[in-house]
Amino acid sequence: MKSLFIDIKNDETRCYLFSIEHGRFEHVETKVVNEAGNYDFGIKNSGNIDVNISLPINMLNFRVLELPFRDKERILEVLPFELEGMILGGSDKVIMDAVVLNKTDNKYKVLAVYIEKLILGRTLSDLKASSLTPSLITSIELRSVLNEFSTEKLINPVNIDDAQRIKYAIEEIINPSINLSKGEFVFKQHLEETKKGLKIASILLLLIFFTISADIIFHLYTTRSEISNIKKEIRKQYLELYPQEKNVVNEYYKLQSHFKELIDRNSYLSGISCLNTLRLLSQLERRSAIFNELIIEKGNLTLKGEADNLNDIQQIKDSLSRNFENVVISDSKSSLQNKMLFTITAQEKKLE
Rank of each mutant, 00 (worst) to 15 (best):
E148R: 13
L124C: 02
K72P: 10
E116K: 09
I75G: 07
F69H: 06
I119C: 10
K72C: 04
L136K: 04
S177H: 01
I119E: 14
E171F: 05
K117A: 08
A98S: 13
R165T: 02
D97V: 06
L132F: 10
N102F: 02
D126A: 03
S130D: 01
I140L: 02
Y168W: 13
M86C: 12
M96T: 10
I115Y: 11
D97C: 12
D71F: 00
L136Y: 09
L88V: 11
S91T: 15
K117Y: 15
I137T: 13
T151N: 05
E148N: 13
E77C: 01
A112Q: 09
V78R: 03
L120P: 13
G121A: 15
P157S: 06
V100R: 01
L83V: 08
E148A: 12
L83M: 14
N159H: 05
L136Q: 15
E84Q: 10
D161S: 05
I173S: 02
A169D: 00
V145F: 03
I160N: 02
P134W: 07
L120H: 09
F81D: 13
L88Y: 12
R143L: 00
L101M: 10
F149Q: 11
I155K: 14
A163Y: 01
S125C: 07
E171W: 01
V78F: 11
I75V: 09
T138L: 02
S150Q: 02
P80Q: 11
V113P: 05
V99A: 02
R122A: 14
G90P: 11
L79T: 11
F81A: 14
F149W: 01
L132H: 08
K72W: 02
N106Q: 13
T151L: 08
V100K: 11
L142Y: 03
P157C: 03
R74H: 12
L120R: 11
S125T: 08
R74Y: 05
I170K: 04
I95G: 15
S150N: 13
I87V: 13
